Amino acid sequence: MASKRSRAARVEDVHALALAMPHVTVYPGTKGRPVYQVGGKSLVFFRNPRPDAFDPDTGERYDDVIVLWVADQGEKLAMVQDDASPYFTTPHFEGHPSVLVRASRLGEITYGELAEVVQDAWLSRASARRRERWLAEHPSG
């Protein structure tokens, strides 16, 4: 049996991992799509269908896009330029420190990989004091 860290990631993991980080609050976004924040700054949110993220074959807007903050453009580029990665971006997010992933593609990464991305999203948005404290408590984090 595969360990939790090596099993395929699921949508419910995004919610659980975001809520497991310290001082995270969840706000109901538009149409009931949650927005996870730390110190009033969003770190993960479930996006409404928008014209910039769509199926190239049908033109249908993706209705399962999750936005995750990243530390910087270098990290973003590393994630979206890897052809094997489910992460992507759109022109709307050009220059924005975040990546997008479709919920339907989360199974292409492991729970452990998703945990790292959510933790990194939190670290990129938390205050310096909170970030330092968390890193001291999680030296491998």
Rank of each mutant, 00 (worst) to 15 (best):
R50F: 12
G29Q: 01
V11W: 09
H92R: 07
G107Q: 05
G107F: 06
E116M: 07
Y111M: 06
A78G: 11
H138R: 02
R131W: 02
G40Q: 04
L100Y: 03
K41A: 04
L77A: 15
P56T: 12
P49D: 11
Q37I: 07
D83W: 11
V44I: 10
R125S: 07
H15S: 10
G29P: 02
W69G: 02
T30K: 15
P91V: 11
R47P: 02
E108G: 11
V14N: 03
S140N: 15
Q81G: 15
A136M: 10
A103L: 09
V118T: 01
L17E: 06
E132I: 08
A78I: 09
V38Q: 03
A2D: 12
A2F: 13
A9V: 02
D57K: 15
A53S: 12
P97G: 09
I66F: 04
R129Q: 15
G95F: 10
N48L: 12
A126K: 00
D63V: 12
R50C: 10
A103K: 14
R125I: 03
V80L: 03
L77T: 15
R47K: 14
H92A: 08
P49S: 06
V99Q: 00
I66R: 02
R33M: 13
K4M: 11
R102Q: 08
F54N: 08
H138Y: 00
R133K: 09
G112A: 15
Q119I: 01
V67I: 10
P49K: 04
K31E: 13
V117F: 01
E137I: 01
E108T: 13
P28F: 04
R50I: 14
H92T: 07
P34I: 07
A136P: 06
A115M: 06
R102Y: 05
G95R: 05
S6E: 11
F88L: 05
E116D: 15
V44P: 03
S104V: 06
E12L: 09
V118I: 05
Q81Y: 14
S127F: 08
E113G: 14
K4G: 13
P86I: 01
P51T: 04
G59N: 08
R5G: 13
R33H: 08
L68Y: 00
S6K: 13
A121D: 00
E132V: 07
E132A: 12
F45W: 07
A16S: 09
D72I: 06
A9Y: 01
D63G: 11
S127K: 08
D52W: 08
M1E: 14
Y62V: 13
N48A: 10
P91I: 15
R133L: 11
V44R: 01
G74W: 11
M1T: 12
F93E: 07
